[in-house]
């Protein structure tokens, strides 16, 4: 009985249907446990959490240097009340490093990438936490101030992609966007 103390011996091993279910459930948990290491070695999409500590001012300097030496154009931002109405478009060398900085409320700069090339994309924040959410692909990563979060990324489709912020960062959060163009 569920509501009164048990006074008769109650220890029994599982039997019958219960045993069948227990077996299925354990097996399923085992399959799920194996899927993650399997994908880690065989799958192409993984979050390894590669990161280095960095002072926001240093990350800002690296980004500015990256923009100055790789700028290829200008993007006119159509978003109302965005922090910047114009963004530099920057193309990192294939296989090279790209820097993307989040701050209230802008992803900076805009990037131009080549399909099939691999880049090391450095993400960090100058102020609060932000969320890197690449749309319409729907790939999401956390961005923290003080951490240089490195994604080794290979675009496999072309077009215009929008980076949305998906970690709350104040009143302009919904308008915090950025751009990645893939050719």
């Amino acid at each position: 009985m569920s509501l009164r103390p048990l006074t008769t011996p109650w220890f029994h091993g599982p039997a019958g249907h219960e045993k069948i279910w227990l077996g299925c459930a354990i097996l399923w948990c085992f399959v799920m446990s194996l899927m993650m290491p399997y994908w880690h070695f065989r799958g192409k999409q993984n979050s390894t959490g590669e990161a280095y500590t960095v002072k926001p001012a240093d990350f800002f300097a690296r980004t500015e240097k990256f923009v100055a030496s790789n700028r290829v154009g200008t993007f006119k931002n159509p978003i109302a009340n965005a922090l910047m109405t114009e963004l530099p478009i920057v193309e990192p060398p294939a296989g090279g490093d790209a820097y993307l900085m989040g701050r209230m409320w802008q992803w900076y700069p805009a990037l131009r990438l080549r399909k099939g090339e691999t880049y090391r994309l450095h993400l960090s924040s100058l102020d609060l936490q932000h969320g890197f959410s690449l749309q319409p692909l729907n790939m999401n990563f956390q961005v923290l101030p003080g951490y240089d979060h490195v994604l080794t990324l290979t675009p496999t489709s072309t077009g215009e992609f929008t980076i949305v912020c998906n970690e709350f960062c104040g009143a302009g959060h919904h308008a915090m966007t950025g751009k990645i163009f893939v050719e």
Binding site: C29, S33, M36, S47, T48, G49, L144, H149
Partner: peptide
């Protein structure tokens, strides 16, 4: 923290598989 910087893949996989699935097993029971 699965897509957080600074926490490695091994740590993430260990804590969500072996450990979490034993709690999931409990709910399935």
């Amino acid at each position: 923290l699965l897509v957080d910087p600074g926490v490695g893949a091994t740590w993430k996989i260990w804590n969500t598989s072996y450990a979490m699935y034993l709690a999931v097993l409990a709910s399935m029971i």
